[in-house]
Amino acid sequence: MTFDQILTALKKKEYRPVYFLMGEESYFIDQISDYITEHVLTDAEKGFNQHILYGKDTDIDTIITYARRFPMMASHQVVVVREAQNIKKIEELEAYIKNPLQSTILVINYKYKSLDKRKSFSKLVDKNGVLFESKRIYDNKLPDWIKSYLANRSFTIVPQAAQLLAEYLGSDLSKVSNELEKLIISLPAKTQITADHIEKNIGISKDYNIFELQNALGQRNILKSNQIINHFAANPNANPLPRTISSLYQFFMKLLTFHFLDDKSPTAAASKLGVNSYFVKDYIAAARQYPIRKLVAIIGTLREFDMKSKGLGNVSSSAGDLQKELIYKILHD
């Protein structure tokens, strides 16, 4: 079952006896687990029928003991095991999962790790309950995720603003959702969110950010590129060098990929590059500024500065100095 399918079923009160929630992205695991703890039982029922266990402080026998209890004055009891990835031999739950109590909802939060789906334990969980793998969202899918998240709350967002948030916040969905909630609380209902809203309510500069740096470099706008990188150098904590290098590497790799596309139409290019079709025009313009040979050299330079940022081949240059030197080499070498 997908995340949306699980939540839809829960909202219909269609419960399964076991939810094994695993994977690298904690956000979806927390959302499912929190929905169950907040909505299955009433506040009056929770006192006797809701139990929270922690992987470091419990074991398989204790979990099974709780799971096999019958609810008191309620239709269900809820047993949540947090940090279950710390439990050794989690597969020993098989004895219970073979015949789970239908009045118990056992929720296993198994974060940052995943079971081997080919093994019998995984297949048993999938047969008798819900086996959900929470995968990290790809960076190129993050702007669409932001758009969808806001749409569910009756807000819209312009493509540039969604891209700005994605570039600045990264793919930690818990962090992204927290920042989006700040916007939602601060703005009137059904607002179309722009870069101005983001700067005012979250503090991400609409003029001095990695997205604007990419645009300036794509246009070979030397003045604007230097203004932005000087701002980065003066504010290293808000604009760390590794994030700058990573974002620029992705940008120039996409630009190199664009050169080799047979079909450079907006729809086809957007699909291949993993970007919103709105931004394809920027790649078309940047491709005119950067031929293939130049892009190959830039990618080599980015790798060189990645090593320098980690202390290899760099004795005394600060992160700010490295950022300035990097941009100079991209524009002038």
Rank of each mutant, 00 (worst) to 15 (best):
N140C: 12
L142M: 07
P291A: 08
S316P: 00
L173P: 00
K310G: 06
I193V: 14
I202K: 04
N226C: 10
I229D: 02
F260P: 02
D333H: 11
Y138M: 11
H197V: 12
F121R: 02
D306P: 06
V176R: 00
F132E: 03
S154L: 00
L131Y: 01
G311F: 10
A161M: 06
N226Y: 15
V315Q: 14
Y112D: 08
P242Q: 14
Y149C: 04
G274T: 12
R220E: 15
G23S: 03
L241R: 01
A234M: 15
L326W: 02
I245Q: 00
R303M: 08
I299P: 01
N109V: 13
L164C: 06
K310V: 11
Q289E: 15
M253H: 09
N226M: 15
V107I: 15
T8E: 13
P242F: 12
L187F: 10
N276Y: 12
H76P: 07
E14G: 01
D306V: 08
Q323Y: 04
G55Y: 00
K206I: 10
S271A: 15
R293Q: 08
K281Y: 05
L21T: 04
K46I: 14
I108M: 05
Y328R: 09
F279R: 00
H197L: 12
R136A: 10
K141I: 07
L322I: 09
L302A: 00
F28N: 05
S174M: 09
I229P: 02
K310Y: 11
K46W: 12
S134P: 02
I90N: 03
V18E: 05
N235S: 13
I222S: 12
I193E: 13
K127A: 04
I6K: 01
V107C: 12
T8W: 02
V79Y: 01
T8K: 13
